[in-house]
Amino acid sequence: MKSNNSLTPSYFQFTVFADYGPLRYLFFSLCLLIYMIIISANVVIILTVCLENSLHQPMYIFICCLSLNSLYGSAGFFPRFLMDLLSDTHFISRPFCFIQIFVIYTYASYEMSVLCIMAYDRFVAICQPLHYHSKMTFRTVLLFLIFAVLYPVCVFGCFFYLATNLPLCGNKLHRIFCTSVSVFQLSCVDTTAISRVGQVFAVISIFVPLSFVHYTYLCILLVCRRSSSDFRGKALQTCLPHIVTFGNYCISLFCEVSLSQYNVDVNPFVSVALSLEFLIIPPINNPLVYGLNLPQIRKVIFRCCKRPNMNEFL
C-alpha cells in the first residue's frame, strides 16, 4: 500500500494552455497591458480617496477597499498567468497552487462582502438620512470591514485545510489557475460530501447577498417614488455605479461557479474566457465606473491632472 506522501504530487500541471507559437507574445502583451491598466486605475482611486480629505466618508472608503481588493486579486492571478503564456511548460508547485487558491477565493468573497456593505450604506443614506451619521460611524465602518476580511478567511480556511491534506492521484488541472474544486477532483478518496458542501456554500455566497442587495434597492426605489425629481436624480447618481458594479460582478461570479462547481461542458476557449472575465472585468470596471460617474471623485482626479499644467504657466 502506498503512503500518502507517494500519492501527493509536489507540483500541478495546467492542461488548458495550448501552443500558440508566436501569437503567445501578442497574448502576453495584451494581458500585460490589461494588468497595467488594472494597477494604474485602482491606484488612482486609492490615492484620490486617501489624499483628499473631503472623500474620507464611508461610501468612498468602501470604494477604496474595492480597489485594494482588485489589486490583491489581480496579484494572485496575473503574474503567474503571464509566466504561463510565455512558458513551454505549465507547472506550478503545490504550495504556490494553494496560495493562489486562497488569494483568488478570498478576493471573490471580499468583493461580495464590500459590495453588500456598500448597498447597506446607500440604504441608510437614502431611506434613513437623519440616522446616517449615527449609524455609519467610523467604528461601524471599521467593524464592517474587519468582518468582511475575517469571514472569508475563516470559511475558506476550512476548505483550504481539507484541500492541502487530501491524498491526490494525479496532478493535471484543467484550468488556467488553481481552484479547490479542480484539486478535489484529483483526490484518491471520495470527496462527494465536501463537494456538496462547497456547492451549497457557493449558492449561498451568491444568492444571499444578491437577495439582500435587491431588498435594499427595492426600499430605495420606494423612497425615490415618493420624493422629488431632484432627490431621485441625486439618489440615482450615487446608486447607479453600485448597481452596475454589483450586477457585473454577480454575472462574472455565477459563470465561474457554474464552470468550476457543476462541471459545465463548454469549449476550452469559452472556459478560458469565462475565467478571465471573473478576474479581469471587475477590477477594470470598478475604478472606471466610480471614477467616471461619481462627480466627487472625478472632480478631484481632474483637478490633480490639471495641476501640473497650471504650474507651467505660473
Rank of each mutant, 00 (worst) to 15 (best):
N42E: 09
F102Y: 14
N42M: 09
Y35N: 14
F77N: 01
D19E: 15
D84L: 11
A75F: 15
M36H: 08
L30I: 15
C97N: 01
S87Q: 06
V103D: 09
R24D: 01
Q100D: 02
C50M: 12
R80F: 13
M83W: 13
S54K: 14
F96S: 10
S93Y: 00
L68V: 12
T89H: 14
C31V: 13
Y20C: 09
L82K: 03
H90F: 05
N69R: 02
N69P: 06
F91H: 13
L33I: 10
E52Y: 04
L55S: 04
F62G: 01
F78T: 06
V49H: 05
L71E: 07
H90Y: 02
C97G: 12
P22T: 00
L33F: 15
L32A: 15
C65H: 09
E52R: 08
E52T: 14
H56G: 04
F98N: 00
Y60R: 00
I99Y: 09
G21E: 04
S87N: 12
D84W: 10
I61G: 04
S70P: 00
V103R: 06
C97P: 04
L30P: 03
I39Y: 12
I45G: 08
M59T: 11
F78E: 08
P95W: 03
I104W: 05
P95A: 00
H90L: 01
R24M: 01
L47G: 01
L23P: 00
L26Q: 00
F27V: 06
S70C: 15
A75H: 13
S93N: 10
F28D: 04
M36R: 12
L68K: 10
I101L: 12
C65A: 14
T89R: 15
Q100K: 01
S54F: 09
I99G: 03
S40W: 14
I63N: 08
C65F: 13
L32E: 07
F77P: 08
F27P: 05
D88L: 13
I38A: 09
I92D: 01
L33P: 08
R94C: 04
L23W: 14
F102C: 09
R94S: 00
H56R: 15
I61K: 11
F91C: 11
G76P: 01
C50R: 15
R80L: 13
M83C: 11
G73A: 09
L32F: 12
Y25R: 08
P22Q: 04
I46F: 07
H56S: 11
S29W: 00
C97T: 07
F77K: 07
